[in-house]
Design a protein around this nucleic acid. Sequence first.
RNA 1: GGGCGAAUGGCGGAAUUGGUAGACGCGCCAGACUCAAAAUCUAGUUCCCGCAAGGGAGUGUGGGUUCGAUUCCCACUUCGCCCACCA
Length: 826
Amino acid sequence: MNRYNPLEIEAKWQARWEKSQAFRADDTSKKPKMFLAEMFPYPSGAGLHVGHVRNFTIVDVLTRFYTQQELNVLRPFGYDTFGLPAENYAIKTGISPQAATATNIANFRKQAKKLGYAIDWSREINTSDPEYYKWTQWCFLKLFEKGLAYQKESYQWWCPVDQTVLANEQVENGCCWRCGHEVEKKKMKQWFFKITAYADELLADIDSLDWPEKIKTAQRNWIGRSEGAEVDFTLEKGSAKKITVFTTRPDTLFGATFLVLAPEHPLVKSLVTPDTKPAVEAYIKSALKKSEIERQENKEKTGVFTGSYAINPVNGEQIPIWVADYVLSGYGTGAIMAVPAHDERDFEFAEKFSLPVIAVVEPPKDLAAERCYHGEGTLVNSGEFTGLASAEARESIVAWLESRGIGHKKVTYKMRDWLISRQRYWGCPIPIAYDKSGHPHPIPEDQLPVIHPEVKDYAPDKSGRSALAKAKDWLKVTVDGEEMTRETDTLDGYACSSWYLWRYVSAHDTEHAWDPELIKYWAPTDIYVGGDHAVAHLLYVRFWCKFFADLGLLPFREPIKKLLYNGYINAPDGKKMSKSKGNVIDPLDVIDSGYGADTLRTYEMFIGPYNEDAAWSTKGVGGVYRFLNRCWTLCFGGEANVLSSEDPELRRGRARDTRDGGLARRASDKESFAVIAAKTEQIRHKTIKKVTQDLHRASFNTAVAALMEYVNELYKSGASKEDLIILGKLLKPFAPHLASEMLESLKADDVWPTWDESKLAADVVEVVVQVNGKLRAKLSVPVADTEDEDKVIALALKDTNVQKFVSGKPKKSIYVPHAHLLNLVA
RNA sequence: GGGCGAAUGGCGGAAUUGGUAGACGCGCCAGACUCAAAAUCUAGUUCCCGCAAGGGAGUGUGGGUUCGAUUCCCACUUCGCCCACCA
């Protein structure tokens, strides 16, 4: 007998699949479609890691499952290649990001093929290929046309030593990651996408998504809708100036004892007096220098009085205006009315700076008075509104403000517009040019793509502009006959991944970003699998989808029907895998050590529920390898050991060792072959049902367990040819090479089998008897008798063990036929 | 601080609608095979008592609902993840 040699058969099948382009999706099919994808990877120089394998294998199992169910399946693949690692590598080594990317892609492709993935390689995409990013730029122009791509001054991290802008992740403990100098915030003109224009729809449509609840919640929180009011406070001294604040609690307006502005608030400069100016300016400077981490670590309230006062519109009180960094410039109006009696943060601030605290909401009597009650209650000290319930008062006070034109209802979102400028070379160039007066113009569509110029040094220049600024010739461009200068910022990588799913339908289309007919057939994506980007990427694709739907370019408003969010795989020690800890498991090592791709794939599906983190177990891999070996032995190792049987085909595939005691025992059994055949048929149908249903609910680990049970059973009772065919078909999504080898030798196709419900029922059923909820006996009852409750009760009462616990007639009995359970209450 | 999720043998995990807790795998243990080992096969493996039949306890802790709770409700403990001064 040949031994199971995974590396040999895997190479054989991979070569065949390659040659026949076995996984090309059919654009012209009339069959129902299924479009699956993983979150495409950033191809790092380290190659695939076990996390990729888990992610891609989930998609592959489903791809093969639906293909075997004879759907028309699209399962493409691509690479998200723009980003800092390639750029930093280029800065360090001088090797161009283009060249490094090409090498990494070749490696990823080779490794993905080695895993036997059923990928339609004709649709491979790469976001840094001009063929692709021409259309990313086209998307930008569409957003620009509709006013959804715009420029605004915004604060960015800036290193005064390196003279460069830094991304958030390049700021470590408030310092520059390269030189270690403290970073500052610098105001710069930046590009934004107006995602807030879709805030309401993005929020509302979350309900309809077949996505994990935790992702949906994360998106709801991120969007952060809150209802409240904007209220105008006039300044004293009869000035026409006013300060508008946002509050969710207009009912507490009588308790507003001071105003607070964010340090960045534009009015601050005009509120200072000669006395306060130096202190306020110093405070603003230090506040802007504070890093995010410092803000998080030290929540001690700080602030400074501007020297000006405002008038509380409801009671005419004069209240001081302060500046403090606990008020954020990007949210609401960047200014708040502080109600220290009912807001914890305002209270802390008032306490520190000895500002007055006036309670205006009385909690219900059964609630103990808190230091700072922020719940609902009855209004006190609130003029004509005193005595109203707080919820009611919110309405009344806003109406009162509205009638005077000094306030109105307002909905605010935590979500900000999406900042997409990156002062980086290795990103998609923004297709914009500036005229002599600095006004931005779109690069005309027929001049796309705007391609990266060659440069010698990839480091950003001293002005904070990307290395693109060093390509003097490239910078000059003629647009509509006018000499202009190109934009040197590039797009955030998330822009490239906001539309790639649609590119897959016509990956190399030179006329469109996506083919308008094919998109109707294939999209939206039916199942999308990933373990990252809960809000960012998964919100951005939804945003672009709605935008392009509004342009009439997409016939749907949600891009992803079902999302599977897979967990991480940790090292055997339970810690995150990392090079520095030396605990990294390389999936290619697992394959090459002799286990093969089928074992690796099946193991990663068996490791635990797909959506939870799991720890790698080298021993566990061995267990799965043994299982696949047993599959092999059943199919190829049995000939020499066929049991004597009336039907040699029936008992084909007995384990190779005939000397064991179990066999001897079974040989002496009186069980006829017909009885054994009936039993295996039942298990066969049970397994088909279990594996099919488990794949539908993405329960991969239990599907593999069911296959293991099946194989264990076939080992005991012998496998018929039919059993082996079913095993091969059910195994194929997990271990496609081995299963293909099996099905080929059995001369069988791989069409997914169906089960016959009537074959699942046995003649005799085990009925569980409980007394007072405790298990006391198990009865063998003929199926026909299980429908008669009285008969079952009578049978139960005859059982000697039941009799020990039931004296006389039971008080009550509960019979649950479908669970084969009888509970007697004694 | 807020939100979400989780807690089951020695370990990873299963139990899909409130109905036999511990499937499957690892590990361990005994046996077969072998000169021996590995590999393979067979059997056992929640804990306690018992030769056994059987009994008792048992799904983080405490309570509740129910004939019956890993599953539902309340309170608490621990761990994980995400967000975090969002007015």
